Deep mutational scan, measured.
Amino acid sequence: KLPPGWEKRMFRSNGTVYYFNHITNASQFERPSG
Rank of each mutant, 00 (worst) to 15 (best):
1 K>A: 15
1 K>D: 15
2 L>S: 03
2 L>W: 03
2 L>Q: 02
3 P>H: 00
3 P>E: 03
3 P>S: 01
3 P>I: 01
4 P>E: 09
4 P>M: 09
4 P>I: 09
4 P>W: 10
5 G>N: 06
6 W>P: 00
6 W>D: 02
6 W>F: 01
6 W>Q: 01
6 W>G: 00
6 W>T: 04
6 W>N: 01
7 E>F: 08
7 E>W: 08
7 E>Y: 08
7 E>I: 11
8 K>N: 02
8 K>P: 03
8 K>F: 10
9 R>Q: 03
9 R>E: 02
9 R>S: 03
10 M>P: 03
10 M>E: 09
10 M>D: 00
11 F>D: 15
11 F>S: 13
11 F>V: 11
11 F>T: 09
11 F>K: 11
11 F>A: 07
12 R>A: 14
12 R>W: 10
12 R>H: 12
13 S>Q: 11
14 N>P: 04
14 N>V: 03
15 G>W: 05
15 G>P: 01
15 G>H: 11
16 T>I: 15
16 T>H: 11
16 T>D: 05
16 T>M: 14
17 V>K: 05
17 V>P: 09
17 V>I: 13
17 V>S: 07
17 V>N: 05
18 Y>D: 04
18 Y>A: 00
18 Y>T: 00
18 Y>E: 01
19 Y>P: 02
19 Y>N: 00
19 Y>K: 00
20 F>S: 02
20 F>H: 09
20 F>D: 01
20 F>P: 02
20 F>Y: 14
20 F>R: 00
21 N>V: 06
21 N>H: 06
21 N>M: 07
21 N>I: 11
21 N>A: 02
21 N>D: 04
21 N>S: 05
23 I>M: 10
23 I>T: 07
23 I>D: 07
23 I>A: 07
24 T>I: 04
25 N>Y: 08
25 N>L: 14
26 A>L: 11
26 A>G: 05
26 A>Q: 15
26 A>M: 14
26 A>I: 15
26 A>S: 11
27 S>F: 15
27 S>E: 15
27 S>R: 15
27 S>A: 12
27 S>L: 15
28 Q>A: 07
28 Q>Y: 03
28 Q>F: 04
28 Q>T: 09
28 Q>I: 05
29 F>K: 07
29 F>Q: 06
29 F>Y: 11
29 F>R: 10
30 E>L: 08
30 E>G: 07
30 E>K: 05
30 E>F: 05
31 R>Y: 10
31 R>M: 09
31 R>N: 07
31 R>A: 08
31 R>S: 04
31 R>D: 10
31 R>P: 11
32 P>M: 02
32 P>R: 00
32 P>K: 02
32 P>F: 04
33 S>L: 11
34 G>F: 14
34 G>V: 11
